[in-house]
Design a protein around this nucleic acid. Structure first.
Ligand SMILES: Nc1ncnc2c1ncn2[C@@H]1O[C@H](COP(=O)(O)OP(=O)(O)OP(=O)(O)O)[C@@H](O)[C@H]1O
Length: 702
DNA sequence: CGTACCCCACTTTTT
DNA sequence: GTGGGGTACG
């Protein structure tokens, strides 16, 4: 994917032989250096060539912040003679890292491979994989996603005979645990601080949860960051190695870093202070998962010697779009005011459509897309250039809103790609297959073992699993418990009392398949290994007997097999580990294909950092956007507004806004979103102006 | 004891 | 349409 094969390691011989040019300051610029600076404006050049010490680029949307990081890295390598592996760039998604590496490759060639790039999570994962033992983390730890986490909590609930609903709903408990962890609290501290009944309950679960994950050699997403930080704080030798290794640090989308990430960066930059962060406080949209806007606002206080470079020219949008975005976000308090202008004066008005219901709204959007892209048949000679479908995106607040739009697109046979929603890697059959891969590499990962035990159904039910859990639990002879993989093998040999014959035979069969597959790992490629998993686990035969749905699931397994082929250049064992790790850390955006001739359907959150010539924002209805759960709280309302700013500024040329008066589900009617009234009226072209709902002075409740 | 089937509540945003 | 949980049957 996006990272060099071992971004945390020492340079390989090949890396070392990458020619490193001596610093050149003072000399005339060579052709490559010209190419690096040419596509930049004056302010961007200043940011790119300011290489020593802390640097903050705080600037509005589309002002070329990401471009600054890319070109700055190129400049460091080409002009300053910095070795590529001494440079680190943290991006918001792995996709963004991959794109940055591609751009870099175009500019400077092969040495782009050696720059360390990735998300906070993937970088921490790789550091921990390599050095985690220094803080007591086993090398082969497993990364648990939300579903795995929920299974751990459900196990507790079962032990305690508690329901998985109401105040003991797993997602609720996990959310509370996550928030506490991101605030830097341990389970002990949570217990000390707990006041309400529910807080005490959560604190107790937090303690059990932490102990259980430890036993399973598993970490969750929060742990990746926390342990990554602990590595820097509690393993001085390791920390110093990384501080010496990465001499130049870059962080994109800095406004959405949380406290742990902030401290992690500070630890890494402590020695040299060569830290370049870029971001836009108006685009901070992840406070609900711990992001703290103060990280960027306080940068100059944290780094008193920081250079601050504002970027004021927007290269993405028309002035109309920028004015609309500004009209909305300027209603927020306590933001840093930033200039933003564009050479693209004027531009198309923003179309607004007030629909009766979501279906009507979707139909209108589809009609507009058909009009704009009416390339294929019956195009009028005077019609504007038809737009291609990959230049169109439809944005919405919640995943559920995509349904009505999807249906309308399907009816009109307009191809689309849906980003997010039920993600590929969390589909049941895909997770089952991945669980098989995980048990090949772990004896302790109970959650993965339990997943595969009865898929396909083979006579191992709740009762048997309970017996196995009991056998794996800590006891007098085994104070740390017994690895689940060993328990399964033992049960297959009839060494666990109470397991019935059918289950016992199945368990023996599973243990046998696991050991056979393990023997094969080193000898076959990853796709071949997956073939083995599919046939020997019985997954393949099971799906073959499941009709149309089984066929779809089987197609997903084949797709997974195809993806696994990307790791062919690695040794089989490394390929397996990398594949399992990467699949745990993919972001929604990673699935986005900007070249595909399709309309993109995507949430406003996932659209951050992307851009399209034509953008629709749908569902601008009070209660939906802004969301009803944000109506009561000023801070949350401001975040919704920033989200609106992000959405508007994704558009390069044409923007359409729509709302439905009757919402699809839930509580009754919605009024047009307040954000519509915050856009200067002269920028708007109300499509159904003759409609009494949207008329005159009172339009949008102005 | 396990499986198949039916019914329920559910949908803010995600690494 | 969804997935998970509860219940009835084999
Ligand atoms: N100096 C420049 N000249 C022309 N185009 C530029 C320049 N700098 C950036 N761009 C283009 O402007 C667009 C926005 O750039 P970029 O994504 O780097 O901005 P950003 O500030 O990171 O945006 P956002 O914060 O909205 O994600 C891109 O299409 C980029 O190629």
């Amino acid at each position: 994917m996006s990272l060099p094969l071992d971004p945390t390691g020492e340079p390989s011989p090949a890396e070392r032989s990458t020619p490193v040019r001596a610093p050149l300051s003072g000399e005339a610029l060579n052709a490559v250096e010209e190419r690096i600076l040419a596509p930049l404006n004056e302010a961007q050049r200043r940011a790119v060539t300011t290489t020593a010490g802390p640097l903050l680029v705080l600037a509005g949307a589309g002002s070329g912040k990401t471009r600054v990081i890319t070109h700055r890295i190129a400049w460091l390598i080409q002009h300053e003679g910095v070795a590529p592996w001494k440079i680190l760039a943290v991006t918001f998604t792995n996709k963004a890292a991959a794109e940055m590496r591609d751009r870099l490759h175009e500019m400077i060639g092969e040495s782009a491979r050696d720059v360390a790039m990735g998300t906070f999570h993937s970088l921490c994962a790789r550091m921990l994989r390599r050095d985690g033992e220094a803080i007591g983390l086993p090398k082969g730890f497993t990364i648990y996603d939300a579903d795995d986490q929920a299974r751990v909590i459900k196990g507790f609930l079962k032990e305690d005979d508690l329901p998985a609903t109401g105040e003991t709903k797993p997602s609720l408990i996990l959310g509370a645990i996550s928030r506490a962890k991101n605030d830097g609290l341990t389970a002990d501290q949570m217990e000390d601080r707990a006041i309400t009944h529910h807080e005490r309950l959560v604190a107790r679960f937090a303690r059990r949860y932490a102990a259980e994950l430890k036993r399973l050699d598993a970490v969750d997403f929060d742990d990746l960051l926390l342990e990554g930080l602990r590595l820097l704080q509690e393993a001085p030798a390791v920390a110093d190695r990384y501080r010496a290794k990465w001499e130049y640090l870059h962080v994109d989308e800095y406004q959405d870093t949380n406290r742990i990430q902030y401290t992690w960066v500070r630890e890494l930059a402590a020695k040299h202070g060569n830290l370049c962060v870029v971001g836009d406080d108006d685009q901070s949209i992840y406070s609900w998962r711990g992001a703290d806007i103060r990280n960027i606002l306080d940068f100059e206080r944290d780094w008193p010697t920081a250079e601050v470079v504002p970027l004021e020219q927007n290269y993405r949008s028309t002035q109309t779009i920028l004015d609309a975005a500004h009209g909305v976000v300027s209603n927020n308090q306590g933001r840093k005011k930033k200039k933003l202008w564009t050479e693209l004066e004027g531009g198309d008005q923003i179309t607004v459509y007030g629909a009766f219901d979501p279906e009507d709204e979707a139909a209108w959007i589809v009609r507009r897309i058909e009009e704009a892209s009416a390339a294929v048949t019956g195009r009028r000679a005077d019609a504007p250039e038809p737009v291609s479908l990959n230049g169109i995106a439809i944005l919405y607040r919640t995943n559920a809103q995509s349904r009505a739009i999807e249906e309308a697109l399907l009816r009109s046979s307009i191809p689309y790609q849906l980003i997010g929603g039920t993600r590929f890697y969390q589909r049941r059959e895909v997770k089952d297959a991945l669980a098989w891969l995980r048990v090949l590499r772990s004896d302790t990962d109970r959650i993965s073992y339990e997943r595969i035990l009865n898929v396909p159904p083979r006579g191992i039910g709740d009762k048997t699993i309970e017996l196995l859990r009991a056998a794996a639990a800590p006891s007098v002879n085994a104070p740390d418990g017994t690895p689940f993989g060993h328990v399964i093998a033992a049960a297959g040999r009839g060494e666990v009392a109470g397991v019935n014959t059918r289950a016992r035979n199945s368990l023996a069969g599973i243990a046998d398949v696991i050991s056979r597959l393990r023997d094969r790992i080193a000898a076959v490629t990853l796709p071949e290994l997956l073939d083995g998993v599919y046939s020997e686990s019985g997954l393949r035969a099971h799906l073959a007997s499941e009709g149309v749905e089984g066929e779809e699931r089987w197609a997903n397994l084949l797709e997974l097999r195809g993806i696994s082929g990307r790791f062919m250049e690695l040794a089989p064992l490394d390929a397996l580990d990398r594949f399992v790790e990467d699949t745990a850390l993919v972001a929604d955006q990673d699935a986005f294909d900007g070249d595909a001739e399709r309309v993109t359907l995507i949430t406003l959150h996932a659209a951050k950092g992307l851009e399209w010539p034509t953008v629709f924002i749908s569902g601008l209805t009070e209660g939906l956007f802004p969301h009803s759960r944000s109506l009561m709280d000023q801070e949350q309302m401001e975040e919704e507004r920033r989200l609106c700013y992000v959405g508007i500024t994704r558009a390069k040329r044409r923007l359409s806004l729509s709302y439905a008066l009757r919402r699809g589900w839930g509580d009754g009617d919605g009024a047009p979103s307040r954000f519509l009234a915050e856009i200067p009226e002269e920028l708007l072209d109300v499509a159904n102006d003759d409609d009494p709902r949207a008329d005159g002075e009172t339009r949008f409740g102005r």
